[in-house]
């Protein structure tokens, strides 16, 4: 079962590295209700399903970041946009809100817009620069949730 959130404030202060990871600790990076929905799909006695999904996402994210870097190198903005959109979808599904927001930005930049997607950005080099910056950031954010989730599932190998 997912950790409860009722004891959030007390646990936050007394949290130690040894304790089991709490979703609530990652409130900035992970949307609890969305992720819990995934957890609810698990059978009662194990977390095979959600774990499969999450680890599938790790692979997907890893390969997507690689593709993004390649596209960035090749200055293929539209590829970057659709890669951003692609990863945005799955990260949104898992409730990985920070990653999702960054991917959305990359999607917009790649489409020649500003980060909200409302204002045109005609200068490709600015878009590329923005993507480069965002990509670096999103990889860090991703790293954080990956570590957390691996701990969450008790599988630490990265």
């Amino acid at each position: 079962m997912a950790p409860t959130t009722t004891t959030k404030t007390t646990e936050e202060t007394s949290q130690t590295k040894a304790g089991p990871p709490k979703l609530s600790d990652m409130a900035d990076s992970i949307d609890e209700s969305t992720f819990e929905q995934i957890l609810e799909m698990d059978d009662d006695d194990d977390r095979d399903f959600s774990q499969g999904i999450v680890f599938g996402f790790f692979e997907q994210a890893g390969s997507t970041f690689e593709k993004m870097e390649k596209a960035l190198y090749e200055k293929k903005l539209s590829d970057l946009s659709s890669l951003g959109h692609f990863l945005k979808g799955s990260s949104a599904t898992l409730g990985l809100s920070k990653v999702k927001e960054a991917c959305e930005k990359i999607q917009h930049y790649g489409a020649g817009k500003d980060e909200t997607g409302t204002v045109d950005e005609p200068d490709q080099s600015i878009s590329l620069k923005n993507i480069e910056k965002t990509l670096t950031q999103v990889k860090e954010d991703y790293q954080e949730v990956e570590e957390f989730l691996r701990k969450f599932y008790g599988v630490e190998e990265s």
């Binding site: 995934i38 609810e40 399903f49 997907q60 599904t93 898992l94």
Partner: peptide, 16 residues
Amino acid sequence: EDNMVNQMVMRKLLQS
């Protein structure tokens, strides 16, 4: 759905 993650989640959701 082209995204495997989303696809799995949706399928599971529908199955459930």
